[in-house]
Amino acid sequence: MAAEQGKVDPMHQFKIEPLFGTDHWQIAGYHIPFTNSALWMAITVAVLFLFVRGGMKRELVPGRWQMAVESLTGFIDNLLAANVGPAGKRYVPYIFSLFAFILFANVLGLMPLALIPGLHPFTPTSHFTVTGVLAVMSFAIVLIVGFWRHGLHFFSLFVPHGTPIWLLWLIPIVELISFLVRPFSLALRLFVAMMAGHVLLEVLSSFVITSTNSGALWGTVVGIPSFLLMIAICALEILVAGIQAYVFALLTSLYLNDAENLH
């Protein structure tokens, strides 16, 4: 496709394709083929499983691997302790799953695995169907916890402390809107950040290829700077992969704090 047209299609990397002839799989009328997206989720889960597995030796004096796994769990534990308090301890499994899954999916999608012929890396987190499900899950947990712990008193979330009485008709509406926007902002932030980075890398690589094909002059003037920029943006994208996973986990824990402790 892209190669046949002689140029790089920066959107091709986001295309979902059914794999292994599972195109006809259906449950209750829903079309659920095992796609390349599902395959990369599976790879993410497998890598994550092996990573955490390596930290389960439970030695008193940890080795390097155990230390790495323990610092990841400790990081999530501290995040929740700092943002939610002692009640945050029970959300460690969920926030850890969220953070680790997003982080591993982001980073695996950035790996230069396309160099291996026949392998097309795919980043599940660059699809809002995926990030949306994660965001809706986080939002649902916030709602359930909030109403479970505070009942209808949870609505006092929309009236922050110190609201002047003459603004009582406006503030709750503003707060309600900002509350309802949360799942969308969660989902779109991650999806846009991942997609933008991948598109940028692909566009720059198409500059390198096209300019080099059109002669040594253009290759030098356009190709080499684009290539250097690509290297820098690769480093930036690895940073973004970590930051977006962190932001998703951090915001979810902040929302959980609202649900646990109100304001």
Partner: peptide, 29 residues
């Protein structure tokens, strides 16, 4: 693709949450 995406994400994220998050992480901690 939305059905497939949601279905497989729930399967794999569910595995992450129940096996890794609830099974292995508490042991590490």
């Amino acid at each position: 693709t939305y059905a497939s995406q949601i279905f497989w994400l729930l399967i794999f994220f569910g595995f992450v949450f129940f096996v890794i998050g609830r099974g292995m992480v508490p042991k590490v901690m």
